[in-house]
Design a protein around this nucleic acid. Structure first.
Length: 179
DNA sequence: TTCACGATTCTA
DNA sequence: AGAATCGTGAAG
């Protein structure tokens, strides 16, 4: 669960899709090189590594692991209550919905900063978590470092065997309705 | 200085 | 399937 509080508005949702990246593996920005752009990835955990992608969108990562080790988790999709299931479905859309840009690169997740991650309801069975390969990478394709909630409607890319139907062309707000 | 490309999304 | 769009890093 992620929460953002600004000007008395609380925006929150359930993180339903993530990917992991590590300096040990070629898809990672921190693979074999430490540059001004990826510097934050090597910083202390709990900060955000945010970069511009395709000149248009932003990707938001939570830096993990110890300082000086490039390691992060890409936030790919968030399900927001009382909102269209697709408003934060995908890295670019997610960043847009939460108003996060590279201005927020290196922001520390905390109550003080108005952005933090909190514990949500526990996942009942592991069957509800699907582990598979990452999206949109040209290297490290074999690594299955993508995880998502199988029964969520807010996943960016689905697979056969998911527990809910594909999106219909017309958007259907239905956060609390079952699959 | 030039060039290729990318952890994406929307449109045809 | 293809375009849009621009910061970054490597090459010349």
């Amino acid at each position: 669960m992620i929460k953002r509080e600004s000007s008395k508005q609380l925006l929150w949702g359930v993180i339903v899709e993530t990917e992991a990246y590590s300096q040990s593996e070629p898809a990672c920005h921190g693979y074999k090189k430490r540059t001004p752009k990826n510097e934050v990835l090597f910083g202390p955990p709990g900060h955000l590594y945010i970069y511009l992608i395709y000149g248009t969108y932003h990707c938001v990562n939570v830096v993990t692991n110890k300082t000086n080790f490039g390691n992060g988790v890409l936030l790919r999709s968030i399900a927001l209550p009382d909102e269209n299931e697709r408003t934060a479905s995908g890295p670019g859309l997610l960043a847009k919905r939460f108003g996060l840009t590279r201005e927020h690169n290196n922001l520390k997740l905390s109550l003080e900063q108005g952005l933090w991650i909190a514990k949500g309801s526990s996942i009942k069975t592991m069957d509800n978590i699907h582990q598979t390969t990452r999206i949109g990478v040209s290297k490290g394709k074999d690594l299955r470092w993508r995880w998502y909630l199988r029964n969520s409607r807010s996943i960016s890319k689905r697979e056969k065997g998911d527990l809910c139907p594909s999106y219909s062309k017309a958007w259907q707000p239905s956060f609390n309705q079952g699959p």
